[in-house]
Design a binder for these strands. Structure first.
Lengths: 230, 230
DNA sequence: CCAAAAGTGTTCTCACTACACCCATGT
DNA sequence: ACATGGGTGTAGTGAGAACACTTTTGG
């Protein structure tokens, strides 16, 4: 079996765009870099993919690397977040240290998991930023983040499941409507949004549960995503 | 500036799913492997990304690598094909020679460019296969191809531009309808499809041109994609 | 009582569907 | 003449937009 020792190789990394909604704003988790290059600047969480060790001695898959980095940098367990590969970024000069190809991931986190995120991340090194009040980002991370936001918007208009990961497990119709409005930057007529939502209910994807929730006005009915074996 | 000599690295490749329509069937271009591993089996065209040399001495971008491989293996120029990054495949054991991460691309080729494809590829080594009559594929290329087909179908239902790359530059409404029917495996009412198509015309995306085309029945009007500066 | 948000009803438009029918060409 | 595919007309259905209205809470 021939080997492939003869090719020069790039380093390979994963970078993760971790999004959530806080204070009625779409926010992204950034890490302040301690080391050169870009020391002191903000960057997406991420790191190099392990290519040796593990079962088989060849390291971890790309998804596993993303899951590991997510856990290491945020303390979040992956089955609580929406994690999805986005795109490979491989411009020759994107990292001043040398050739690095980065696989970008999107992670969508529910706001009721904050306390854990805060506990796991060193507060001095990690912070949430509103996506339209960003600092200067290291590497090509501004481009990656832009790609992720476009992707999220496109995704949302095709697959409502993403929206549910930006909302507490028990939600009102208004909660979900706000998610759409914040991400898409538009407003929806509440009557029309409601009818759209109720179609999901009688398709069996969402179920009403007992109880109500105070909202500042008339209390709202509460719903829950139906757990399904995919 | 710190370097990154300390990480073991994977090799990085691009694999290209080249699709076209021939004989009323969706077809994919495959290469017969001459070397181990998988010698004698069919595989997607592709190759390793150059990581040294070129301007800056760091090699080529991922897109450039895909364009280069496409030109080398099919003789096609990239501005005649729809070329798009699909997904990164990085399972640790996907290549028996060692750790290889592959960036998959989708290339969609018009059938009127065949003669050049045939001339450029060694006929013994390259062949078109109908996508549902495939041989056993090397590596994880069956998975990559499946991903590409799903992606193509999803793309088509959102963005009609892809369809035009599967059809001669001057086309009839029937030509385009057949593309949709072949890819989606359904049939469309011709009257309804026609109206949908005509909306694109008065949105200015397509323009009628003089002349007609014989079709086996009444001759059809001919249209052309409007060239636009994006 | 008033503000605020939930929830209901009604009307219009527009795209997609189904299906019946006419038109121009090759054989 | 007739088969074949292009092209036209019409009626129904269902989703979304717009907007007026009622209901139930907190202050």
């Amino acid at each position: 079996m021939p080997r492939i020792y003869d090719h020069p190789r790039p380093a390979i990394a994963v970078d993760i765009v971790v999004l959530t909604i806080r204070h009625e704003r779409l926010q992204v988790l950034l890490i302040e870099r301690a080391l050169e290059p870009f020391a002191g600047q903000w960057a997406l969480p991420g790191g190099f993919v392990k290519v040796e060790g593990g079962r088989g001695g060849r390291g971890e898959s790309l998804d596993a690397a993303a899951r590991r980095e997510l856990r290491e940098e945020t303390g979040l367990d992956v089955d609580e977040v929406w994690l999805e590969q986005l795109h490979a970024f491989g411009a020759p000069s994107r990292d001043p240290r040398g050739r690095v190809v980065s696989i970008a991931y999107l992670a969508v986190v529910s706001p009721d998991l904050f306390s854990r995120v805060q506990a796991a991340t060193d507060a001095a090194a990690a912070r949430w930023f509103t996506v339209d009040e960003l600092p200067r980002l290291a590497f090509d991370h501004a481009e990656i983040l832009g790609f992720a936001l476009d992707h999220l918007r496109a995704r949302l208009s095709q697959d409502p499941r993403v929206a549910f990961h930006l909302v507490p497990r028990e939600l009102t119709i208004g909660d979900l409507r706000r998610v759409y409005e914040i991400i898409e930057g538009t407003t929806y007529d509440k009557a029309n949004f409601r009818r759209r939502f109720l179609r999901l209910v009688d398709e069996g994807k969402i179920e009403p549960i007992d109880g109500q929730q105070s909202t500042g006005g008339r209390p709202a009915a509460v719903y829950r995503l139906v757990e399904r074996a995919d």
